[in-house]
Structures are given as structure tokens and as C-alpha cells.
Simulated assay, not measured.
Amino acid sequence: MTDFQNSLSVSASGLKAQAQRLRHVSENIANADTPGYRRKTVPFENVVAAGQAEGMVKTGRVKLDQSDLARVYDPSHPMADETGHFDGSNVDLVIEIADAREAQRSYEANLKMFDQARQMSSSLMELLRR
């Protein structure tokens, strides 16, 4: 694989991984008020072929955050127990917004890397035509 193809593959894998991460962050935000909802996290893994790390990344299996669910007091809620409490979600909107910004910045960096490799490849082809 040429260096140009390798750099395009690495940045494309980063784009896919960050898009997947952003999808789960948006699901977490959408379900922040859903009773019993557990926050989803996506781990990243290096892609290894023939015993060598290629620099590419992929997402692992989605994991549920096992931290305690918030206890919410609302006696009028249909899921409330005899004390008037029910289990809320463990989604913290501040953390989700920070994760979304980090995923966006990483996505943009991978997109710039992809574009730079594409421009360099185009320039090389143009030089070779002369």
C-alpha cells in the first residue's frame, strides 16, 4: 500500500470512529431524561494486521456505563416507588457536550488530514503528467 493510500485509510478510519462516537453521544443526550437509561460509551481499538499496527482505528463494542443511576423524587411519576423515588439516567449533559466537542474536533482533524493527502496525491499526479 502506498503512503498516500495508507494516510487516506488512516484518516478515513478516524472519521468513521468519530462519527460512531458522535452518534452514541447524541443518543445519550436524547435519552438523558429517560428513566433507567444507562450512558453508552464507545472504546477505540487499534487495527492490527500481520502483527503490525497500521495506525488505523476502529470502534469496539458499545459499553454501558455502570455508574449508579440518579434517584429522582417525583411521587406523581408512574414508575415511582412507595417513597416517591424512581431511577433516572446516569447521563451527565456536561460530559456529553464535552465528548461531542472532542469528537467534532477529532473528526475535523481527520478530515483535514484526508484532504491534505488527497491534495498531495493530486499534485503528484499533475507533476507526473508534465
Results as ranks from 00 to 15, higher is better:
residue 73 Y to A: 09
residue 107 Y to L: 09
residue 81 D to P: 01
residue 103 A to I: 05
residue 103 A to W: 06
residue 90 N to D: 01
residue 77 H to A: 01
residue 104 Q to H: 15
residue 102 E to T: 13
residue 91 V to F: 01
residue 80 A to P: 06
residue 101 R to E: 12
residue 94 V to W: 09
residue 103 A to Y: 01
residue 94 V to L: 06
residue 80 A to K: 04
residue 90 N to R: 00
residue 73 Y to K: 09
residue 101 R to A: 12
residue 77 H to Y: 03
residue 96 E to F: 07
residue 100 A to Y: 08
residue 88 G to C: 00
residue 74 D to K: 05
residue 74 D to I: 03
residue 85 H to K: 06
residue 93 L to V: 00
residue 72 V to D: 02
residue 78 P to W: 11
residue 99 D to E: 14
residue 89 S to V: 01
residue 95 I to A: 03
residue 102 E to G: 12
residue 102 E to K: 13
residue 108 E to K: 14
residue 106 S to R: 14
residue 93 L to K: 04
residue 94 V to T: 13
residue 95 I to H: 03
residue 100 A to T: 04
residue 76 S to H: 10
residue 108 E to T: 13
residue 109 A to S: 08
residue 104 Q to L: 15
residue 89 S to Q: 02
residue 97 I to T: 15
residue 109 A to Q: 11
residue 94 V to A: 14
residue 102 E to H: 15
residue 107 Y to G: 10
residue 88 G to S: 01
residue 101 R to Q: 13
residue 98 A to L: 08
residue 96 E to W: 11
residue 83 T to L: 12
residue 83 T to C: 02
residue 81 D to R: 03
residue 77 H to V: 01
residue 74 D to V: 02
residue 91 V to G: 05
residue 98 A to C: 04
residue 72 V to W: 05
residue 102 E to I: 09
residue 101 R to H: 12
residue 98 A to Y: 05
residue 104 Q to D: 11
residue 101 R to W: 09
residue 96 E to N: 05
residue 91 V to R: 01
residue 87 D to H: 04
residue 105 R to P: 12
residue 88 G to W: 06
residue 109 A to T: 12
residue 103 A to D: 00
residue 109 A to K: 04
residue 95 I to Q: 13
residue 91 V to S: 01
residue 80 A to G: 06
residue 90 N to Y: 00
residue 79 M to L: 12
residue 100 A to I: 04
residue 90 N to G: 05
residue 108 E to A: 10
residue 94 V to S: 09
residue 76 S to T: 13
residue 74 D to W: 05
residue 91 V to E: 06
residue 73 Y to T: 08
residue 105 R to K: 14
residue 109 A to L: 13
residue 75 P to K: 08
residue 94 V to P: 09
residue 92 D to V: 10
residue 73 Y to F: 14
residue 103 A to K: 04
residue 74 D to P: 02
residue 96 E to L: 08
residue 107 Y to T: 14
residue 73 Y to Q: 08
residue 80 A to C: 08
residue 95 I to L: 08
residue 72 V to P: 02
residue 96 E to R: 01
residue 107 Y to K: 15
residue 77 H to I: 00
residue 89 S to L: 02
residue 93 L to Q: 04
residue 97 I to A: 09
residue 99 D to W: 04
residue 100 A to R: 05
residue 89 S to W: 00
residue 105 R to C: 11
residue 105 R to G: 13
residue 72 V to E: 11
residue 105 R to W: 11
residue 81 D to Q: 00
